[in-house]
Design a protein around this nucleic acid. Structure first.
Lengths: 216, 216
DNA sequence: TGTAATGTTTACCAATCGGTCAAATTATCC
DNA sequence: GGATAATTTGACCGATTGGTAAACATTACA
Protein backbone atom coordinates (compact mmCIF):
# COMPACT_ATOMS: atom_id res chain seq x y z
CA UNK A 1 0.00 0.00 0.00
CA UNK A 2 1.39 3.35 -0.94
CA UNK A 3 2.36 5.47 2.02
CA UNK A 4 1.52 9.13 2.53
CA UNK A 5 4.22 11.05 0.77
CA UNK A 6 5.23 12.81 3.94
CA UNK A 7 6.89 9.60 5.02
CA UNK A 8 9.40 10.02 2.24
CA UNK A 9 11.10 12.76 4.15
CA UNK A 10 11.91 10.43 7.01
CA UNK A 11 14.36 8.28 5.12
CA UNK A 12 15.28 8.46 1.45
CA UNK A 13 15.57 5.30 -0.55
CA UNK A 14 18.18 4.61 -3.20
CA UNK A 15 15.40 4.55 -5.76
CA UNK A 16 14.10 7.88 -4.53
CA UNK A 17 17.50 9.50 -4.96
CA UNK A 18 17.90 8.13 -8.46
CA UNK A 19 14.41 8.89 -9.69
CA UNK A 20 14.26 12.37 -8.24
CA UNK A 21 17.60 13.07 -9.89
CA UNK A 22 16.26 11.73 -13.18
CA UNK A 23 13.12 13.82 -12.93
CA UNK A 24 14.89 17.06 -12.05
CA UNK A 25 17.29 16.50 -14.93
CA UNK A 26 14.37 16.15 -17.34
CA UNK A 27 12.55 19.05 -15.70
CA UNK A 28 15.61 21.23 -16.29
CA UNK A 29 15.51 20.32 -19.97
CA UNK A 30 11.88 21.32 -20.29
CA UNK A 31 11.49 24.25 -17.91
CA UNK A 32 14.64 25.96 -19.21
CA UNK A 33 13.17 26.12 -22.70
CA UNK A 34 9.47 26.76 -22.17
CA UNK A 35 9.32 28.35 -18.73
CA UNK A 36 6.97 27.23 -16.00
CA UNK A 37 3.64 27.92 -17.64
CA UNK A 38 4.76 26.68 -21.04
CA UNK A 39 5.99 23.33 -19.77
CA UNK A 40 3.83 20.28 -19.17
CA UNK A 41 4.25 17.35 -16.84
CA UNK A 42 3.78 15.05 -19.82
CA UNK A 43 6.77 16.60 -21.59
CA UNK A 44 8.93 16.15 -18.54
CA UNK A 45 7.68 12.59 -18.08
CA UNK A 46 8.58 11.74 -21.65
CA UNK A 47 12.09 13.20 -21.35
CA UNK A 48 12.56 11.40 -18.04
CA UNK A 49 11.31 8.16 -19.56
CA UNK A 50 8.70 7.61 -16.91
CA UNK A 51 4.92 7.76 -16.70
CA UNK A 52 3.21 10.93 -15.58
CA UNK A 53 1.71 9.46 -12.40
CA UNK A 54 5.14 8.15 -11.57
CA UNK A 55 6.54 11.69 -11.65
CA UNK A 56 3.71 12.82 -9.45
CA UNK A 57 4.60 10.12 -6.96
CA UNK A 58 7.90 11.90 -6.34
CA UNK A 59 6.69 15.48 -6.73
CA UNK A 60 3.11 16.15 -5.76
CA UNK A 61 2.63 19.00 -8.21
CA UNK A 62 4.28 20.74 -11.12
CA UNK A 63 4.99 23.61 -8.76
CA UNK A 64 6.81 21.32 -6.33
CA UNK A 65 8.99 20.02 -9.15
CA UNK A 66 9.83 23.53 -10.25
CA UNK A 67 10.56 24.66 -6.71
CA UNK A 68 12.87 21.72 -6.06
CA UNK A 69 14.69 22.41 -9.31
CA UNK A 70 15.17 26.10 -8.59
CA UNK A 71 16.38 25.39 -5.08
CA UNK A 72 18.96 22.97 -6.35
CA UNK A 73 20.19 25.23 -9.14
CA UNK A 74 20.31 28.56 -7.35
CA UNK A 75 22.96 27.68 -4.82
CA UNK A 76 25.53 26.69 -7.42
CA UNK A 77 24.55 29.62 -9.55
CA UNK A 78 25.80 32.13 -7.00
CA UNK A 79 29.04 30.31 -6.28
CA UNK A 80 31.22 32.48 -8.59
CA UNK A 81 30.01 35.66 -6.94
CA UNK A 82 30.68 34.22 -3.48
CA UNK A 83 34.22 33.42 -4.58
CA UNK A 84 34.76 37.06 -5.45
CA UNK A 85 37.46 37.90 -2.95
CA UNK A 86 38.21 41.21 -1.26
CA UNK A 87 41.83 40.22 -0.58
CA UNK A 88 42.85 39.44 -4.14
CA UNK A 89 43.86 42.23 -6.46
CA UNK A 90 41.05 43.75 -8.49
CA UNK A 91 42.37 42.87 -11.92
CA UNK A 92 42.74 39.15 -11.31
CA UNK A 93 39.51 38.98 -9.30
CA UNK A 94 37.49 40.57 -12.08
CA UNK A 95 39.22 38.46 -14.68
CA UNK A 96 38.52 35.21 -12.90
CA UNK A 97 34.93 36.21 -12.11
CA UNK A 98 34.33 36.78 -15.81
CA UNK A 99 36.01 33.45 -16.61
CA UNK A 100 33.95 31.56 -14.10
CA UNK A 101 30.69 33.09 -15.23
CA UNK A 102 31.53 32.35 -18.86
CA UNK A 103 32.37 28.77 -17.99
CA UNK A 104 29.01 28.41 -16.31
CA UNK A 105 27.27 29.83 -19.37
CA UNK A 106 29.12 27.27 -21.46
CA UNK A 107 28.75 24.26 -19.17
CA UNK A 108 25.34 24.97 -17.63
CA UNK A 109 23.30 26.83 -20.23
CA UNK A 110 20.05 25.20 -19.15
CA UNK A 111 20.49 26.46 -15.61
CA UNK A 112 21.07 29.95 -16.97
CA UNK A 113 17.95 29.78 -19.11
CA UNK A 114 15.86 28.42 -16.27
CA UNK A 115 16.84 31.47 -14.29
CA UNK A 116 16.30 33.84 -17.22
CA UNK A 117 12.82 32.44 -17.80
CA UNK A 118 12.01 33.02 -14.16
CA UNK A 119 13.20 36.64 -14.40
CA UNK A 120 11.21 37.33 -17.56
CA UNK A 121 8.09 36.19 -15.80
CA UNK A 122 8.70 38.57 -12.93
CA UNK A 123 10.42 36.05 -10.64
CA UNK A 124 7.16 34.76 -9.11
CA UNK A 125 8.96 31.88 -7.40
CA UNK A 126 12.20 33.52 -6.28
CA UNK A 127 11.39 37.14 -5.57
CA UNK A 128 12.06 36.78 -1.85
CA UNK A 129 15.43 35.22 -2.56
CA UNK A 130 16.33 38.13 -4.84
CA UNK A 131 15.37 40.73 -2.28
CA UNK A 132 16.98 38.82 0.57
CA UNK A 133 20.05 36.62 0.16
CA UNK A 134 20.96 37.83 -3.32
CA UNK A 135 20.74 41.49 -2.44
CA UNK A 136 22.80 40.91 0.69
CA UNK A 137 25.49 39.09 -1.25
CA UNK A 138 25.63 41.77 -3.90
CA UNK A 139 25.70 44.53 -1.29
CA UNK A 140 28.66 42.80 0.29
CA UNK A 141 30.56 42.53 -2.97
CA UNK A 142 29.67 46.07 -3.94
CA UNK A 143 31.32 47.18 -0.72
CA UNK A 144 34.46 45.31 -1.72
CA UNK A 145 34.49 47.05 -5.06
CA UNK A 146 34.06 50.39 -3.34
CA UNK A 147 37.15 49.83 -1.24
CA UNK A 148 39.06 49.13 -4.43
CA UNK A 149 37.82 52.41 -5.81
CA UNK A 150 38.66 54.34 -2.65
CA UNK A 151 42.19 52.97 -2.65
CA UNK A 152 42.55 53.96 -6.29
CA UNK A 153 42.97 50.41 -7.58
CA UNK A 154 40.17 50.76 -10.09
CA UNK A 155 38.40 53.72 -11.63
CA UNK A 156 35.40 55.30 -9.98
CA UNK A 157 32.21 53.58 -11.08
CA UNK A 158 28.91 52.24 -9.78
CA UNK A 159 29.68 48.79 -8.36
CA UNK A 160 26.12 47.53 -8.81
CA UNK A 161 26.03 48.30 -12.49
CA UNK A 162 29.46 46.76 -12.82
CA UNK A 163 28.13 43.51 -11.41
CA UNK A 164 25.03 43.70 -13.60
CA UNK A 165 27.16 44.16 -16.70
CA UNK A 166 29.28 41.12 -15.91
CA UNK A 167 26.17 39.05 -15.31
CA UNK A 168 24.50 40.16 -18.50
CA UNK A 169 27.46 39.87 -20.84
CA UNK A 170 28.38 36.38 -19.70
CA UNK A 171 24.89 34.92 -19.37
CA UNK A 172 24.11 36.26 -22.82
CA UNK A 173 26.13 33.41 -24.31
CA UNK A 174 23.82 30.89 -22.67
CA UNK A 175 20.47 32.64 -22.87
CA UNK A 176 20.85 34.04 -26.39
CA UNK A 177 22.96 31.16 -27.67
CA UNK A 178 20.78 30.69 -30.72
CA UNK A 179 21.20 34.33 -31.71
CA UNK A 180 24.95 34.29 -31.12
CA UNK A 181 25.27 31.20 -33.31
CA UNK A 182 23.10 32.67 -36.02
CA UNK A 183 25.03 35.92 -36.18
CA UNK A 184 28.48 34.35 -35.97
CA UNK A 185 27.58 31.79 -38.61
CA UNK A 186 28.33 28.10 -38.56
CA UNK A 187 32.09 28.54 -38.85
CA UNK A 188 32.50 30.60 -35.66
CA UNK A 189 29.84 28.87 -33.61
CA UNK A 190 32.08 26.16 -32.17
CA UNK A 191 33.41 26.19 -28.64
CA UNK A 192 36.03 28.68 -29.77
CA UNK A 193 33.52 31.46 -29.41
CA UNK A 194 33.80 31.19 -25.65
CA UNK A 195 37.53 31.85 -25.85
CA UNK A 196 36.88 34.84 -28.10
CA UNK A 197 34.23 36.10 -25.72
CA UNK A 198 36.52 35.70 -22.72
CA UNK A 199 39.31 37.59 -24.46
CA UNK A 200 36.99 40.42 -25.45
CA UNK A 201 35.25 40.73 -22.09
CA UNK A 202 38.45 40.67 -20.08
CA UNK A 203 39.89 43.36 -22.32
CA UNK A 204 36.72 45.43 -22.05
CA UNK A 205 36.40 45.24 -18.29
CA UNK A 206 40.08 45.52 -17.43
CA UNK A 207 40.76 48.46 -19.74
CA UNK A 208 37.40 49.96 -18.89
CA UNK A 209 37.96 49.81 -15.16
CA UNK A 210 41.63 50.47 -14.64
CA UNK A 211 42.33 53.77 -12.93
CA UNK A 212 42.51 56.83 -15.14
CA UNK A 213 45.84 57.14 -16.91
CA UNK A 214 45.08 60.78 -17.55
CA UNK A 215 46.28 62.13 -14.25
CA UNK A 216 42.97 63.85 -13.58
CA UNK B 1 -22.90 36.83 -43.23
CA UNK B 2 -19.26 36.62 -42.34
CA UNK B 3 -16.91 36.78 -45.26
CA UNK B 4 -13.91 34.51 -45.77
CA UNK B 5 -11.07 36.09 -43.89
CA UNK B 6 -8.97 36.38 -47.01
CA UNK B 7 -11.22 39.26 -48.03
CA UNK B 8 -9.81 41.29 -45.18
CA UNK B 9 -6.58 41.72 -47.06
CA UNK B 10 -8.35 43.51 -49.89
CA UNK B 11 -9.42 46.54 -47.91
CA UNK B 12 -8.92 47.22 -44.24
CA UNK B 13 -11.71 48.72 -42.23
CA UNK B 14 -11.31 51.33 -39.53
CA UNK B 15 -12.57 48.76 -37.05
CA UNK B 16 -10.06 46.24 -38.28
CA UNK B 17 -7.20 48.65 -37.72
CA UNK B 18 -8.36 49.50 -34.24
CA UNK B 19 -9.14 45.99 -33.10
CA UNK B 20 -5.99 44.45 -34.49
CA UNK B 21 -4.04 47.18 -32.72
CA UNK B 22 -5.91 46.43 -29.50
CA UNK B 23 -5.27 42.72 -29.83
CA UNK B 24 -1.57 43.02 -30.57
CA UNK B 25 -1.19 45.37 -27.63
CA UNK B 26 -2.76 42.80 -25.34
CA UNK B 27 -0.80 40.00 -26.97
CA UNK B 28 2.41 41.87 -26.25
CA UNK B 29 1.44 42.07 -22.59
CA UNK B 30 0.86 38.35 -22.37
CA UNK B 31 3.45 36.85 -24.72
CA UNK B 32 6.25 38.99 -23.28
CA UNK B 33 5.71 37.51 -19.84
CA UNK B 34 4.81 33.90 -20.50
CA UNK B 35 6.28 33.18 -23.90
CA UNK B 36 4.38 31.56 -26.74
CA UNK B 37 3.60 28.20 -25.19
CA UNK B 38 2.85 29.65 -21.78
CA UNK B 39 0.31 32.16 -23.07
CA UNK B 40 -3.33 31.42 -23.79
CA UNK B 41 -5.77 33.06 -26.14
CA UNK B 42 -8.16 33.49 -23.23
CA UNK B 43 -5.58 35.54 -21.33
CA UNK B 44 -5.04 37.78 -24.31
CA UNK B 45 -8.76 38.12 -24.88
CA UNK B 46 -9.29 39.18 -21.29
CA UNK B 47 -6.52 41.79 -21.43
CA UNK B 48 -7.86 43.04 -24.75
CA UNK B 49 -11.38 43.19 -23.34
CA UNK B 50 -12.90 41.12 -26.11
CA UNK B 51 -14.28 37.61 -26.44
CA UNK B 52 -12.06 34.79 -27.59
CA UNK B 53 -13.92 34.10 -30.84
CA UNK B 54 -13.63 37.78 -31.57
CA UNK B 55 -9.84 37.60 -31.36
CA UNK B 56 -9.91 34.61 -33.64
CA UNK B 57 -11.94 36.58 -36.12
CA UNK B 58 -8.96 38.89 -36.62
CA UNK B 59 -6.20 36.32 -36.20
CA UNK B 60 -7.01 32.82 -37.29
CA UNK B 61 -4.67 31.15 -34.82
CA UNK B 62 -2.50 31.88 -31.81
CA UNK B 63 0.48 31.40 -34.11
CA UNK B 64 -0.81 34.07 -36.49
CA UNK B 65 -1.18 36.51 -33.62
CA UNK B 66 2.33 35.82 -32.45
CA UNK B 67 3.77 36.11 -35.92
CA UNK B 68 2.05 39.43 -36.55
CA UNK B 69 3.32 40.73 -33.24
CA UNK B 70 6.90 39.66 -33.86
CA UNK B 71 6.88 41.15 -37.35
CA UNK B 72 5.69 44.47 -36.03
CA UNK B 73 8.17 44.59 -33.17
CA UNK B 74 11.30 43.38 -34.90
CA UNK B 75 11.65 46.21 -37.36
CA UNK B 76 11.73 48.90 -34.70
CA UNK B 77 13.94 46.76 -32.55
CA UNK B 78 16.81 46.92 -35.02
CA UNK B 79 16.51 50.63 -35.66
CA UNK B 80 19.32 51.69 -33.27
CA UNK B 81 21.77 49.31 -34.88
CA UNK B 82 20.83 50.57 -38.34
CA UNK B 83 21.52 54.10 -37.16
CA UNK B 84 25.05 53.08 -36.22
CA UNK B 85 26.98 55.25 -38.62
CA UNK B 86 30.35 54.60 -40.23
CA UNK B 87 30.97 58.31 -40.84
CA UNK B 88 30.58 59.48 -37.27
CA UNK B 89 33.46 59.23 -34.84
CA UNK B 90 33.63 55.99 -32.86
CA UNK B 91 33.28 57.49 -29.41
CA UNK B 92 30.07 59.37 -30.07
CA UNK B 93 28.62 56.53 -32.18
CA UNK B 94 29.16 53.99 -29.43
CA UNK B 95 27.88 56.41 -26.83
CA UNK B 96 24.69 57.11 -28.69
CA UNK B 97 24.15 53.46 -29.56
CA UNK B 98 24.30 52.60 -25.86
CA UNK B 99 21.94 55.49 -25.08
CA UNK B 100 19.44 54.44 -27.70
CA UNK B 101 19.46 50.82 -26.62
CA UNK B 102 19.02 51.81 -22.99
CA UNK B 103 16.13 54.08 -23.90
CA UNK B 104 14.48 51.18 -25.68
CA UNK B 105 14.97 48.95 -22.65
CA UNK B 106 13.33 51.66 -20.54
CA UNK B 107 10.50 52.59 -22.91
CA UNK B 108 9.78 49.22 -24.53
CA UNK B 109 10.57 46.54 -21.97
CA UNK B 110 7.78 44.26 -23.17
CA UNK B 111 9.22 44.22 -26.66
CA UNK B 112 12.59 43.30 -25.23
CA UNK B 113 11.10 40.49 -23.19
CA UNK B 114 9.09 39.18 -26.12
CA UNK B 115 12.33 38.87 -28.02
CA UNK B 116 14.18 37.36 -25.06
CA UNK B 117 11.46 34.76 -24.61
CA UNK B 118 11.76 33.83 -28.26
CA UNK B 119 15.55 33.44 -27.91
CA UNK B 120 15.29 31.28 -24.80
CA UNK B 121 13.01 28.92 -26.68
CA UNK B 122 15.51 28.56 -29.48
CA UNK B 123 14.00 31.21 -31.77
CA UNK B 124 11.53 28.81 -33.41
CA UNK B 125 9.69 31.67 -35.12
CA UNK B 126 12.55 33.97 -36.10
CA UNK B 127 15.53 31.75 -36.79
CA UNK B 128 15.57 32.60 -40.48
CA UNK B 129 15.51 36.28 -39.70
CA UNK B 130 18.47 35.86 -37.35
CA UNK B 131 20.51 33.97 -39.89
CA UNK B 132 19.52 36.28 -42.73
CA UNK B 133 18.76 39.96 -42.27
CA UNK B 134 20.13 40.25 -38.73
CA UNK B 135 23.41 38.54 -39.56
CA UNK B 136 23.83 40.72 -42.63
CA UNK B 137 23.21 43.89 -40.65
CA UNK B 138 25.64 42.85 -37.94
CA UNK B 139 28.25 41.84 -40.50
CA UNK B 140 27.93 45.28 -42.03
CA UNK B 141 28.36 47.07 -38.71
CA UNK B 142 31.21 44.76 -37.70
CA UNK B 143 32.99 45.86 -40.87
CA UNK B 144 32.55 49.47 -39.81
CA UNK B 145 34.05 48.72 -36.42
CA UNK B 146 36.97 46.98 -38.11
CA UNK B 147 37.79 50.07 -40.13
CA UNK B 148 37.84 52.04 -36.89
CA UNK B 149 40.29 49.54 -35.48
CA UNK B 150 42.49 49.58 -38.59
CA UNK B 151 42.68 53.36 -38.52
CA UNK B 152 43.63 53.21 -34.83
CA UNK B 153 40.54 55.03 -33.62
CA UNK B 154 39.64 52.29 -31.16
CA UNK B 155 41.55 49.43 -29.60
CA UNK B 156 41.80 46.07 -31.31
CA UNK B 157 38.89 43.86 -30.35
CA UNK B 158 36.35 41.42 -31.78
CA UNK B 159 33.56 43.56 -33.24
CA UNK B 160 30.93 40.83 -32.91
CA UNK B 161 31.49 40.38 -29.22
CA UNK B 162 31.50 44.13 -28.83
CA UNK B 163 28.02 44.28 -30.33
CA UNK B 164 26.85 41.32 -28.23
CA UNK B 165 28.07 43.02 -25.08
CA UNK B 166 26.19 46.22 -25.85
CA UNK B 167 23.04 44.23 -26.58
CA UNK B 168 23.27 42.20 -23.41
CA UNK B 169 24.16 44.99 -20.99
CA UNK B 170 21.39 47.27 -22.18
CA UNK B 171 18.62 44.70 -22.63
CA UNK B 172 19.43 43.37 -19.19
CA UNK B 173 17.62 46.35 -17.68
CA UNK B 174 14.42 45.32 -19.45
CA UNK B 175 14.64 41.52 -19.30
CA UNK B 176 15.96 41.25 -15.74
CA UNK B 177 14.17 44.32 -14.46
CA UNK B 178 12.76 42.47 -11.49
CA UNK B 179 16.22 41.35 -10.41
CA UNK B 180 17.72 44.80 -10.91
CA UNK B 181 14.99 46.33 -8.76
CA UNK B 182 15.35 43.68 -6.08
CA UNK B 183 19.11 44.11 -5.82
CA UNK B 184 19.12 47.90 -5.94
CA UNK B 185 16.32 48.08 -3.39
CA UNK B 186 13.27 50.28 -3.50
CA UNK B 187 15.21 53.51 -3.08
CA UNK B 188 17.34 53.10 -6.21
CA UNK B 189 14.73 51.44 -8.40
CA UNK B 190 13.25 54.61 -9.81
CA UNK B 191 13.91 55.88 -13.29
CA UNK B 192 17.21 57.24 -12.04
CA UNK B 193 18.73 53.81 -12.41
CA UNK B 194 18.72 54.24 -16.18
CA UNK B 195 20.84 57.35 -15.84
CA UNK B 196 23.24 55.50 -13.56
CA UNK B 197 23.37 52.61 -16.00
CA UNK B 198 24.03 54.93 -18.92
CA UNK B 199 26.84 56.64 -17.07
CA UNK B 200 28.44 53.36 -16.10
CA UNK B 201 28.11 51.70 -19.49
CA UNK B 202 29.43 54.68 -21.42
CA UNK B 203 32.42 54.85 -19.10
CA UNK B 204 33.00 51.11 -19.41
CA UNK B 205 32.81 50.96 -23.18
CA UNK B 206 34.60 54.21 -23.92
CA UNK B 207 37.50 53.58 -21.56
CA UNK B 208 37.50 49.91 -22.48
CA UNK B 209 37.71 50.56 -26.20
CA UNK B 210 39.82 53.65 -26.59
CA UNK B 211 43.18 52.96 -28.21
CA UNK B 212 45.98 51.82 -25.89
CA UNK B 213 47.58 54.70 -24.03
CA UNK B 214 50.55 52.48 -23.34
CA UNK B 215 52.32 52.98 -26.65
CA UNK B 216 52.49 49.24 -27.29
C1' DT C 1 10.40 -16.90 2.30
C1' DG C 2 6.77 -14.12 3.71
C1' DT C 3 5.10 -9.67 4.39
C1' DA C 4 4.88 -4.95 4.75
C1' DA C 5 6.62 -0.86 2.63
C1' DT C 6 7.75 1.10 -1.61
C1' DG C 7 7.26 1.89 -6.40
C1' DT C 8 4.63 1.76 -10.98
C1' DT C 9 0.85 1.69 -14.10
C1' DT C 10 -3.86 1.84 -16.07
C1' DA C 11 -7.87 4.14 -16.14
C1' DC C 12 -9.89 8.08 -15.22
C1' DC C 13 -11.49 13.05 -13.80
C1' DA C 14 -12.66 18.00 -14.11
C1' DA C 15 -10.70 22.09 -16.00
C1' DT C 16 -8.60 24.36 -19.59
C1' DC C 17 -6.71 24.46 -24.13
C1' DG C 18 -7.03 26.11 -29.26
C1' DG C 19 -10.45 26.55 -32.39
C1' DT C 20 -15.33 26.19 -34.96
C1' DC C 21 -20.06 27.38 -36.04
C1' DA C 22 -24.26 29.48 -36.59
C1' DA C 23 -27.00 32.89 -34.89
C1' DA C 24 -27.34 37.57 -33.45
C1' DT C 25 -25.81 42.21 -33.70
C1' DT C 26 -23.84 46.28 -35.75
C1' DA C 27 -21.87 49.16 -39.36
C1' DT C 28 -21.87 50.62 -44.29
C1' DC C 29 -23.60 52.26 -48.42
C1' DC C 30 -27.16 52.92 -51.99
C1' DG D 1 -34.68 52.82 -44.76
C1' DG D 2 -33.32 48.53 -46.40
C1' DA D 3 -30.05 45.35 -48.23
C1' DT D 4 -25.68 43.71 -47.58
C1' DA D 5 -21.36 43.21 -45.62
C1' DA D 6 -18.74 43.25 -41.32
C1' DT D 7 -18.46 42.23 -36.55
C1' DT D 8 -19.55 39.93 -32.15
C1' DT D 9 -21.15 36.38 -29.23
C1' DG D 10 -22.67 31.95 -26.84
C1' DA D 11 -22.64 27.32 -27.28
C1' DC D 12 -19.88 23.85 -28.31
C1' DC D 13 -15.94 20.37 -29.89
C1' DG D 14 -12.05 17.28 -29.41
C1' DA D 15 -7.47 17.40 -27.45
C1' DT D 16 -4.57 18.40 -23.73
C1' DT D 17 -3.88 19.99 -19.13
C1' DG D 18 -2.70 18.97 -13.96
C1' DG D 19 -3.86 15.66 -10.92
C1' DT D 20 -6.23 11.29 -8.53
C1' DA D 21 -7.61 6.41 -7.25
C1' DA D 22 -6.80 2.00 -6.97
C1' DA D 23 -4.93 -2.12 -8.67
C1' DC D 24 -0.61 -4.11 -9.55
C1' DA D 25 4.44 -4.97 -9.19
C1' DT D 26 8.67 -4.71 -6.90
C1' DT D 27 11.81 -4.10 -3.25
C1' DA D 28 13.67 -4.35 1.48
C1' DC D 29 13.99 -6.76 5.51
C1' DA D 30 12.79 -10.04 9.37
Amino acid sequence: MAIPRAAKTLRRTRIQEEKEEQILEAALDVFSVSGFRGSTIDQIAEVAGMSKPNLLYYFRTKEAMHRALIDRVLFNWLEPLRAFDAEGNPESEIRSYIRRKLEMARDFPRESRLFANEMLQGAPHVLDMLKGPLKELVDEKAAVIRTWIKSGKIARCDPYHLIFSIWSTTQHYADFDVQVRAVLGEEHSGDGRFEDAARFLEQLFINGLLPDHSGA
